[in-house]
Design a protein around this nucleic acid. Sequence first.
RNA 1: GCCCCCGUGGCGGAAUUGGUAGACGCGCGCGACUCAAAAUCGCGUUCCGCAAGGAGUGCCGGUUCGACCCCGGCCGGGGGCACCA
Length: 872
Amino acid sequence: MTIERYNPREAEPRWQQAWQQAGVFETPADDPRAPYYVLEMFPYPSGRIHMGHVRNYTMGDVVARFKRACGYNVMHPMGWDAFGLPAENAAKERDIHPGEWTYANIATMKAQLKAMGLSLDWTREFATCDVAYYTQQQSLFLDMLEDGLAYRRQSKVNWDPVDETVLANEQVIEGRGWRSGAPVETRELTQWFFRITAFAAELDAALDTLDGWPEKVRTMQRNWIGKSEGLHFEFGLVDAPEGFERLPIFTTRPDTMYGASFAAIAADHPLARKLAETNPEVAAFCETCRRTGTSQEAIDTAEKLGFDTGIRAAHPTDANWHLPLYIANFVLMDYGTGAIVGCPAHDQRDLDFALKYDLPVHDVFVPADTGERVSDTAFVPPKTQTVRYVRWAGEETVQTCRAAMDASLAKFEAAGWGRRQTQFRLRDWGISRQRYWGCPIPIVHCESCGVVPVPKADLPIKLPDDVTFDRPGNPLDHHPTWRHVACPQCGADARRETDTMDTFVDSSWYYARFVTPHETARPVDPQAATRWLPVTQYIGGIEHAILHLLYSRFFTRAMSRTGHMAVDEPFEGLFTQGMVVHETFSRARDGRDEWVSPEDVRIEDRGGERVAFLAETGEEIAIGSIEKMSKSKKNVIDPDDIIAGYGADTARFFMLSDSPPERDVIWSEAGVEGAHRFVQRVWRLVGGAAGNLSDVAPLAASEGDAGEISKAAHKTLKGVGEDFGRLGFNKAVARIYELVNVLAAPLQAVSDGTADAAMCGACREACEILIQMLAPMTPHLAETCWHALGRSDLVAEQPWPVFDETLVVDSTITLPVQINGKKRGELAVARGADHSHIEEAVLSLDVVRAALGDKPPRKVIVVPERIVNVVV
RNA sequence: GCCCCCGUGGCGGAAUUGGUAGACGCGCGCGACUCAAAAUCGCGUUCCGCAAGGAGUGCCGGUUCGACCCCGGCCGGGGGCACCA
């Protein structure tokens, strides 16, 4: 019997409509089943979806469909992270309003997502630029302000003096503005901050409870929060200006205090500012430091520079021991007290500085074995390693740094030279942005009343639509009327805050809003939010490991503290998926390399080597490195082309095959074709046999050929269920391939009418299992096959099948036999055979006898149901 | 510069987390079907070697009966670094 090819173009829209009509993916509020909240990081509406989105949303969809089948009340919403810089860039470049551009992109991308057949509850959709959403965000801001979690202070920004604009770090290229090319300056502005440091200790400690997160993400967050125990002390300053006689310092290495050779303060330290007032040289130096920019990377990689203030710092242990006091460009005002003590022997940065300024290097400890002294590489062993302390708070001793740090702290405290202190590296979160396309900060500045919060009754503060981008700077600032407003307190003329919020604020609570997306009276319904949160499984890119996830953890706490819900953590399970990358192609053009889109490239095989040609002209071009898909390198594959050509199921299946989901995946046309062949193969086999199976009752067999089929099906079912639970999609795919290989011949026999009743029953059951396992990954194909088997209901509504325990265990197992750790033979034994029986059988094997000769074995290691190793 | 991760055949990857390295897929080779091609099906495919056998998980060293897996040191690639999202 021949069968028509599976036609996804016809089948996919049909099933998508069927699901929608049945409302299978909508989450009822009053459902008694256990809730399961699956969420993928919502996209920025950049224009079109890319393969990274396809991968991310396919993974989430498999989880959602699988958990739904497992009996959970699944919530799987989608929305748009819609504020941000690109919309303003589009406005400038193409004279289109940011809102218009954004909503047009959303429409396009929504249609693309719909074509993927995702099991999303679209009734919950919103965009963060919707007035309804940012109104509630303004309300949250006011609550946080009232609670002391929002405040204003001075802080630095990158300033482009030519464009007269604040620049984002990514807009600063090698110290210059990306458009103007002018050297970037830093400016101090009064800006709004969220007091995330109020939760520093809690955010750190609670990491231990996040069992459902990858260890690497927890480690990154722990390092970012940077909790450290150390010594707080003060230097007495000699020849310092009045009021600066004491200099507070925090050091994490009290054990190295006797190796100090200088002290240094940040260019923004109050003392440095004081000195700059009267000393032009100091002022000039501080200005140089500020030009480095605001990014940590720029500060760390800049040449270490210092300026000797002439002031001397008296060591706390000995008032006569004076250290020079420098202003240094690598000291940060934001961390600790903005001042450090330098110990060159045991810190590379301090050593570089000491060598540059000819300062002494005192070894505090030396390697316990060699006793080697420091020359041009600082000696920084792990704190758990034992070393010989030669110059510290006690006798010469061999001990770990950890022990010496504890002992030093105790000694300093006892002597009254300082005290123990816990310090965090985490800084407060600056949220002010001098931009138009963001959530307005609901504040009014009044001459007489000062900073006045907008009363909640006056919300929302809407963005004005009539803005222009032909002038530099923030359009809200030079809008003719928007900023002028009466003071909510005294009624006098006042002006609005024109800064908008960092877009990270928008994405810090959207997961909570999805629970009750249409609430108008408040950000979230506290009871519903508390019931649905935390998100059961959150899926997104590893690039968000620190900022987005940490800000969300802070927001959950802030919202709980201000009474919006009672939730500790936003995301119970976290999965970070890898990127979709593609090879790049380029050709030389006018002496420069020009990127070529893969669509214009033809690949040929030349003696086993891949060679690329420009399809149109036949010109040979270069195959470049494999990189993250980006428009600038033209290595982008449009998902629409794949879906139009092969169907959504093929695209989905390919995204789940082969590469482990946490790792990057390389896009290749060959891989897509492989996935598509599989889709067709399943249809050919199941669809072909369906006619002879539609009247057969599914029945597992335990004996004979039919038994082999049922065993394979149930073993696969067990494995795939475990794989889906762990998001191990590539392994599930491999298992299903194996099962299909096993089913191929029997299904052909059913098709040919040569299969007996037992075989037909087993095949019918195996097909149903196969279809249900495929359903989360290739849902349209699954429905088509299901229907062909004579079922009139939807796979999407079927409960997950249960495997039969007796079919998944084998009665005999094959043990590999090693001699000295190398596999030399095999031994078939009954499951549960006892140790001595196995040992006896192994020793009588020919290979073992030959290896032993006439000597007895030194040792025989039997690992039950695993392996046997004979040591000779 | 700092923090985190990754490295296995021609390619994507698997290995029950210290127990048979290379499952499954792609590619390639051979064969079947076909007038022919496509599609499909079957067999083979880590490397060296005719073979017996030997080598082998980025490199060097260590622990162990046994190491892709644990430890130390290097090399290469990626992510993040607080205003890209």
